[in-house]
Design a protein around this nucleic acid. Structure first.
Length: 678
DNA sequence: GCGAAGGTGTTTTTT
DNA sequence: ACACCTTCGC
């Protein structure tokens, strides 16, 4: 099991706290994951049945890790019964069993951003509005924000002085109507619909309230109103809600996270016990002092002071670099030096940045120096076009009412159903108020469509129907998917489209990787099904690792590149925090629009507190933007750090300028020579 | 119905 | 600088 004596007094109090609401204010590196997992193990040890335990996290990775760590303490069987999942997969789980009460069918599709984008652009076109990608993105963003704040399509109120909100008021209800017609929900619906379902079905709510006797929430500072409402509903029975968080690490206001959820917790749950975890076990005293002094500049916060018994360690480096390439070069040089001097592994290093696009320069330099790395975030595996195309087939097979995905593949690969025909089908569908899939079954009723196209439509319908039946056999899932890949000849299509044979090869390998992904899913699940697989990958947040990446992961020895947001909850011996410039950190958008400098400071705080032994801050003097050089100012946060702990250096002059300089001096030399001779 | 050329905007963070 | 989308021409 585990030893209570290995915990400090506050940790022990938290672990052994029994019934009643508990707020755990856990500073960075204070062992909060350990406390949650130990608390779960302790509850089981005290006789709580695993089925009665609910633990909610924000990312799949966090859920997976929690599950693993609890399993180490309680054994496999106990963990199996527990509900340890993300908010979103909890929503899926509840909706999969009960969504029919909201008028959806249980085989609903889950729309990711690209599906939403297709749908909203279509709706904008129909509404006669600008259907550019940018406006569609704005719409999705606004609808998402509304859903996060528990505002349904019918309740949405446009604001007078906000022109875009009027368009939202038109599109949002139509969007919702379309989703329902397609038997689809988006990410935010997974939470909002779950809340509405439980609110409307008291006996269902009572069932879940009785079932989950103890509820635990990690990263509580990041909950938004829907998530909070869901928690209030689920915990409303036993009120044994234990939330763990750190207001100083609240960095998701942009997706509706409400910091007052943690600041005002005891108002909603009277009698809350508050325990602070302030001892940091992660960072050197120097790094911690810098973090403390930085975050002290924030106004609204629960006062706390992290302390450590660790020695001071290294000074914090600040390297003022010339440009992006120089910044990358400095990082790689330091990685070389550190691996050599201190026998560090590549996995000891993390490179953190504010925006995903900053990764490019580092990737190039690391590749040039043959240093293995993994890139977290950015373009996700399941967001890549070739993957989405294949998944669109699976979604259509499962739920042909899902017209976004149906239309995506109806002529991909090209089978002779052209735009004109598709337009006509869509028009007919609107006129007769009938689903497209339904219309496709009787193609003879289309008068304006040629015989060739009609045959193609019939073949397409037959294809989908045939796979609908073969995919029903759970024992032949892999074979059937392999057969589908072969039959579609998607590889040929990719070769035709892609000019560069190497990228074509990569994309095909990506597509084949789905087979491995399905294989892994089948191994993990007792009752595998195509629907289960598609749901699982719809919720995935991480790249399942391509072929190259897999070898790296096996060796486990790679440098990690990721955004500051993705870095929360992780730790590394050496952290490079790149782009310490005005405009990046704090980000330009936060200055122009939201004016929330505090959140940017928290983001910086999160970055600093990832470091165990050595922290290197970097910034560039100039950067290329849209192809043009732009001068950059050092981040204001640098001035908020204790200067005596900071070792500032000008990094080397880049090779370009060096050559220019050399050329100039050479020219001068030759001119002088000529004067002398002349 | 399909490919080529030009024009546009692109870069905040995520489930 | 580049990728993506739209438009145009066949």
């Amino acid at each position: 099991m585990f030893d209570l004596n290995q915990l400090n007094p506050q940790q022990r109090q938290a672990v052994t706290h029994g019934a009643g609401p508990l707020l755990l204010l856990a500073g960075a590196g204070s062992g909060k994951t350990r406390v949650i997992t130990c608390r779960i193990a302790h509850l089981v040890q005290q006789g709580t049945s695993p089925e009665q335990i609910l633990a909610v996290t924000f990312t799949n990775k966090a859920a997976r890790e929690m599950r693993e760590r609890v399993q180490e303490m309680t054994g496999r069987n106990a963990v199996k019964g527990m509900t340890i999942s993300t908010f979103h997969s909890l929503g899926v789980q509840i909706l999969k069993s009960h969504i029919d009460r909201l008028g959806f069918k249980r085989n609903f599709s889950i729309y990711a951003t690209s599906d939403q984008l297709r749908l909203v652009r279509e709706l904008l076109r129909e509404a006669g509005a600008d259907s550019s990608n940018r406006d569609a993105e704005q719409m999705i963003w606004r609808i998402s924000a509304a859903k996060n704040r528990l505002i349904d399509a019918g309740q949405y109120q446009p604001t007078l002085r906000d022109p875009l909100s009027h368009l939202v008021a038109t599109i949002y209800p139509r969007y919702q109507k379309a989703l329902k017609a397609y038997n689809a929900v988006d990410f935010d619906d997974l939470l909002l619909l779950t809340v509405r379902l439980l609110e409307g079905q008291s006996e269902l709510l009572a069932h879940y309230q009785q079932r989950f006797v103890y509820q635990m929430v990690d990263e509580y500072q990041d909950t938004n109103p829907v998530q909070y409402q869901l928690l209030k509903l689920l915990a409303g029975g036993h009120k044994n809600l234990c939330v763990v968080g750190d207001d100083d690490q609240s960095i998701y206001a942009f997706r509706g996270a409400d910091i007052s959820n943690i600041l005002d917790f005891e108002k909603d749950f009277p009698g809350t016990r508050i325990i602070k975890l302030e001892q940091n076990y992660r960072s050197s005293a120097t790094i911690l002092a810098a973090a403390n002094q930085l975050i002290a500049n924030n106004r609204q916060r629960r006062p706390k002071t992290l302390w450590t018994s660790s020695p001071a360690g290294y000074a914090i480096d600040y390297l003022r670099c010339e440009d992006s390439e120089d910044e990358a070069r400095q990082v790689v040089e330091l990685i070389h030096a550190e691996t050599f001097r201190h026998q560090r592994k590549f996995s000891d290093f993390a490179i953190l940045y504010r925006t995903n696009t900053q990764s490019r320069a580092f990737e190039e330099q690391l590749r040039y120096d043959n240093i293995p790395y993994v890139l977290i975030g950015g373009q996700q595996f399941f967001d890549r076009k070739e993957i989405r195309d294949l998944v669109a087939y699976l979604r259509t097979i499962l739920n042909p009412a899902d017209e976004v995905n149906l239309l995506r593949i109806i002529n991909y690969p090209k089978r002779g159903i052209g735009e004109n025909s598709i337009d006509q089908i869509i028009r007919r569908s609107a006129e007769q108020n009938a689903g497209i899939w339904q219309l496709l079954q009787q193609p003879e009723q289309f008068d304006g469509i040629g015989q060739k196209t009609l045959t193609a439509i019939a073949e397409f319908v037959a294809l989908i129907k045939s796979y609908q039946s073969t995919f029903k056999n759970p024992l032949r899932l892999l074979d059937t998917l392999r057969q589908l890949l072969n039959e579609l000849k998607l590889a040929d299509e990719i070769y035709r489209q892609e000019k560069d044979p190497q990228t074509a090869q990569r994309r095909i390998e990506n597509q084949n990787e789905i087979l491995n992904s399905l294989g892994a899913y089948i191994e993990r699940n007792e009752r595998p099904s195509l629907a289960g697989f598609v749901d699982a990958i719809s919720l995935l947040d991480a790249d399942p690792a391509g072929k190259d990446d897999k070898e790296k992961l096996l060796s486990g020895n790679t440098v990690t590149l990721m955004s500051l947001h993705s870095s929360k909850g992780l730790e590394f011996p050496v952290v490079f925090l790149a782009g310490m410039e005005e405009g990046f950190l704090p980000h330009k958008k936060s200055l122009d629009v939201t004016c929330d400098i505090d959140e940017e400071r928290r983001l910086c705080y999160v970055g600093i507190t990832r470091a165990e032994q050595r922290l290197v801050l970097l910034g560039a003097r100039q950067r290329r933007k849209h192809g043009k050089l732009e001068l950059r100012e050092p981040s204001r946060f640098l001035a908020e750090l204790p200067q005596q702990l900071l070792a500032t250096r000008q990094a080397g002059v880049p090779a370009d300028d060096g050559e220019e300089q050399q050329e100039k001096s050479a020219n001068q030399f030759f001119q002088q020579m000529q004067q002398l001779l002349g």
